[in-house]
């Protein structure tokens, strides 16, 4: 996983609620067996509309997506995270996220930032007024800063540490292989196996 400490970039306001993962990357793109090439599928149905925000020249190269509430609901497809990252996003800001999406994002180093509705709205308005606006997302300080404004956000210590160090979860878990083996010895005898 790519480590995340502080990121400064431009922001795209996406004024839609319930941006489900079927919109982030439609199912037809999920047939790939590789982990790359998903940027083409990002919002592919919505991008057919020339007015769609990601098609506007002013927002090309932006790396922070500022969305309406309930971003990433629905399907568990991690391809949604891959598509956002491969397109160039490092951060998604919203009032609420789908649980599985948020988990997937933190496994991959895409930072989901939860801010109150009013703050999200203020940031969207600022990014609409000035598409060149620089926004800094500081994970160490748990703070988003833009144009003289700032807002704190919450993230648990463990996830923050893992993201800042860019640590591989599987490697961390395997340090506790003895605990896993001990647990396995005490499992209930009636539990099923697939063999």
């Amino acid at each position: 996983m790519e480590a995340f400490t502080t990121h400064t970039g431009r922001a795209v306001p996406l004024r839609r609620s319930n941006v489900d993962t079927d919109q982030i990357i439609p199912a037809v793109w999920l047939k790939q067996v590789s982990r790359t090439g998903f940027e083409k599928g990002l919002f592919s149905a919505w991008r057919e509309d020339p007015e769609f925000i990601l098609n506007q020249p002013a927002y090309q190269g932006a790396s922070i997506l500022v969305s309406g509430p309930d971003f990433g609901t629905g399907s568990s497809r991690e391809h949604a995270v891959w598509a956002l990252q491969q397109y160039g996003f490092r951060v998604v800001i919203a009032e609420r996220f789908g649980d599985i999406f948020r988990n997937n994002a933190t496994k991959m180093g895409l930072l989901p930032v939860v801010l109150p509705a009013g703050t999200v709205e203020a940031l969207q308005t600022a990014a609409e007024a000035d598409p060149e606006l620089e926004v800094t997302v500081d994970l160490g300080e748990r703070q988003v800063r833009w144009g003289g404004e700032s807002a704190g956000f919450e993230i648990d210590d463990y996830t923050r540490w893992r993201l800042m160090e860019g640590l591989d979860d599987i490697g961390l878990t395997l340090r506790n292989a003895d605990d896993i083996a001990a647990y396995e010895n005490g499992r209930q005898p009636w539990l099923p196996t697939t063999v």
Partner: peptide, 11 residues
């Protein structure tokens, strides 16, 4: 998600 699928397969 797929990262967690890998995690469960491995551990």
């Amino acid at each position: 998600g797929t990262s967690e699928v890998e995690h469960v397969l491995a551990t």
